[in-house]
Design a protein around this nucleic acid. Structure first.
Lengths: 194, 194, 194, 194
DNA sequence: CATGAATGAGCGTTCATTCAT
DNA sequence: TATGAATGAACGCTCATTCAT
């Protein structure tokens, strides 16, 4: 059960990501956030030291959430082929289901002045560990993790944005993408499997 | 009367992207921009209608610059293999040489509230035309342009960021990336050529 | 939380009319008003939506005050002759006692761009009702209210301004005015009474 | 023939009174005035030392214009009765024909901070001289000039404003006013004449 | 004479934050 | 804990005025 206090904090978080999706950082002043969250501006400072801290905290939390969502969808018994498909599809699903979170994380992380003051996202290294594991078991090719990561996830963003209002086409292109990435990343031994 | 001083406008633009790299949008107030550019705040309004217009104008200009830089590096006599390499390497080069421009464009374009008020970047469709051309001549596979685009360029960003302080490793990974993308995108007929 | 401080609002109002008397609308900027009222500029916006609203509110309030002052001085048992004298003298008294209020109301109401956005002053129609009453009871002549109103009050302004530094002469002229207006407005039946 | 220079100055004057009618002093900035007049802001400073001077000059000129218009309508052969009618009607006519001038003069003269820096309006004392003359010849009663002046002119303003959109009623009330003022001001010897 | 560029100062307003309850 | 009042600093922008041509 969520306590009353936590509900206020949750309202604040949701107000932040909603406003930043709709208006950008420029539109997310403390007073607007407070109004949107249904609390007093002073209340924000009960839960967060200051605005900078607040944004960082929310970023860290929601940044993790993306990856925990994805990692939750996979299990270790999947084939490499399935894994790639699941990683891509679950990332796509997350973005569609949590547009505001996605947009907030994107905006925050594209600002060096902000992101340089943050710890690395933990979930990201878990993905890296997973990739290492797959490489060790010769499921996927021995390619640099950064490349692998970007091939798996970046195109999904691109597709989501460019086909924002055409979900059917987005799905088709996503399927095409999955095939291509499987071909590219799966170790040659695995190509026929599954 | 005095002539409009193009140098002043240029100073303003450079002040904007410098400040936004260093401090984010939050740190790019008109008065800071004016101070950085060596002009009066009022002068900014001789060159731009208002702040929103100013940022949009600068975004449109520098957004194009990325692609004109890249398109300038390629020529139509290159093989598909060379083309892919050149596209990737020139994008990487641009980012390294124009960090502030890259960061400004990234931050601006990751904010839906801003980018939704802009026209599409012209250079982007030129890249798409190039890709269509290559597909027509069976140089590259018949893959959706959005996928192709994101495979070519997004991993570069990722590499640049993650290997920011390790240029040698960045170069190595970039080379690995190029090989992989060539394999992935080149039509099977072309795989051996070059 | 703190209670809203009515004294602060009162200080703001007084600062406004003081500054506008001394320097005109031009001299009544929010920061000067705030300084004069002993509050922060931001505090003004706790009590008023914006500057336009503030001026309108103050105008409406003080505009009423003039008439409630005057109406307070008369009672229904006065003869027509007494009524006319009292209306004129109390208007004169108000102006002398509340120079800043008078000047503020005058300046505000002489600006069509401002006064056209205001409701009519309630006290003004009460005066009109009084005049209607007096006409009905054949105390005063059946003359258009606008004429009556202007004969009663406008000359007082004129006298106050022109004899600003000669209060004794002002009083004498005022007495002369009263006699003349009584002659002019009282119904012939009433001329000898009182 | 008006020289080219004077045309520019005239444009500026007209821009000032137009803007001040429509928007009040607040809306009459030098750059708006210049735009409205079709000249450069700098040009304004060729014709006037500064903004304060400009407004004062224009006030003095147009302030006189009201009275020269009125004085032009009367001649010394008129009866007292005719004179009063003509003074009132010509003032009314002027206001209707020159709304912007009237409004500018009203706004300017209702601001002590402005009008205290101006010389008296010359035409005003000419009216006073006329009144003295009429009193000397026992055409009108021996009443203080300020009273006389205010009875003649102030009600006209009031009528014009209150019956702004009902010209027919305004005319009727004006006629009523004239009768009343004639009764009030004409010497008893003159009441039957004309 | 006339201009549009240029400016420092100031505008009305909102900001992130703190205070008093 | 939670609040709305309160604030100095800063915001984006416009002002009256001057400069260079």
């Amino acid at each position: 059960m969520r306590k009353k206090d936590d509900e206020k904090k949750q309202n604040i978080k949701e107000a932040v990501i909603k406003l930043i999706l709709e208006q950008g950082f420029h539109g997310a002043s403390i007073s607007k956030i407070a109004r949107e969250a249904g609390v007093s501006p002073a209340t924000v400072y009960i839960y967060y030291e200051n605005k900078e801290d607040m944004l960082r905290d929310i970023y860290q939390e929601y940044g993790e959430q993306v990856y925990s969502y994805i990692l939750n969808e996979i299990d270790r018994e999947m084939s490499g082929r399935q894994l790639i498909e699941t990683l891509i599809r679950s990332y796509y699903k997350f973005i569609k289901e949590h547009e505001e979170i996605f947009s907030f994380v994107e905006q925050y992380s594209s600002c060096p002045a902000l992101v340089n003051n943050c710890q690395d996202i933990e979930g990201c290294s878990q993905i890296f560990n997973l990739l290492d594991d797959l490489k060790e078991h010769q499921v996927i090719k021995d390619v640099d993790n950064v490349i692998m990561f970007s091939l798996l996830f970046y195109p999904v963003k691109c597709i989501t944005v460019k086909y924002f209002n055409q979900p059917d086409e987005a799905e088709a292109v996503l399927t095409e993408l999955i095939g291509l990435i499987q071909e590219t990343l799966l170790d040659s031994d695995q190509q026929g499997i599954d």
